[in-house]
């Protein structure tokens, strides 16, 4: 009874909060209630969604000629480029990978949780390791990203390699499991996957199969 009358009173105030016009004490009452009430949280999320989507109704209008060009001239180079970042081809491949991950229904969180985490990620670039054969021959690179979701991206560059490499992930607890396959043709290939384990649990990535000699990259 108390809960239900509480929800009714709070429910009245939810549109005010979503529209950004609630008074300070009303906001405080609402948020105190939301902590223990998933139903009202869902309702506020729906109302906020409506408010956000209102802006998308504005008509599209082509801007004056030269708009994009003058904008692109204004872009200063970013303050700190990541050193690990590979060449342009791999960069494009990575962007395509991210598109595939986002499109596959996996929750692709483009960036970190908040400013703090985003900052943290910039401070600590992604891990990059050589993929090498048992005799030390370089066979490509492995990139690991410790954000959310964590992901792994592999490039194979090995003259005469062709076929398929099965990819196994070895975690720190010593377990190994298949996570996919890299198609290789004319000595090159690239492939990536979102991981369901935190990246700091990854000990090693192993490639084996018809494409060429076994390759491995150690992390950690």
């Amino acid at each position: 009874m108390d809960d239900r009358s509480g929800c009714a009173e709070i429910g009245e105030l939810l549109p005010d909060v979503a529209a950004g016009v609630a008074a300070g004490d009303e906001r405080a009452r609402v948020f105190a209630h939301l902590g223990g009430c998933p139903a009202c949280r869902r309702e506020l999320a729906a109302l906020s969604h409506v408010a956000d989507e209102l802006l998308t109704l504005a008509p599209a209008v082509t801007p004056p000629a030269g708009f994009a060009a003058s904008l692109m001239r204004r872009l200063a180079p970013p303050p700190r480029r990541r050193r690990w970042w590979p060449g342009r081809a791999a960069r494009v491949a990575l962007t395509v990978l991210l598109a595939a991950v986002a499109g596959s229904g996996a929750t692709m969180r483009a960036t970190a949780d908040d400013r703090r985490e985003a900052h943290h990620c910039r401070e600590r670039p992604l891990a990059e390791r050589a993929l090498a054969a048992a005799d030390g021959t370089a066979g490509g690179r492995a990139f690991g990203y410790g954000g959310s979701p964590p992901w792994l991206f592999l490039t194979v560059a090995l003259p005469a390699a062709g076929g398929v490499y099965d990819v196994h992930l070895v975690t720190r607890d010593g377990r190994s499991r298949a996570i996919g396959a890299v198609p290789v043709s004319a000595g090159g290939g690239s492939w990536g996957v979102a991981l369901d384990v935190p990246f700091d649990q990854v000990a090693e990535v192993r490639l084996a199969g018809s494409a060429g000699p076994p390759l491995a990259a150690a992390f950690g």
Partner: peptide, 21 residues
């Protein structure tokens, strides 16, 4: 790998965060 894929809005944001003009 084909690059003709239409990139998702999110992947463009990732590229921008990495300074990709």
């Amino acid at each position: 790998m084909t690059f003709a894929v239409a990139l998702s809005d999110e992947s463009l944001i990732v590229g921008m965060a990495l300074g990709d003009t």
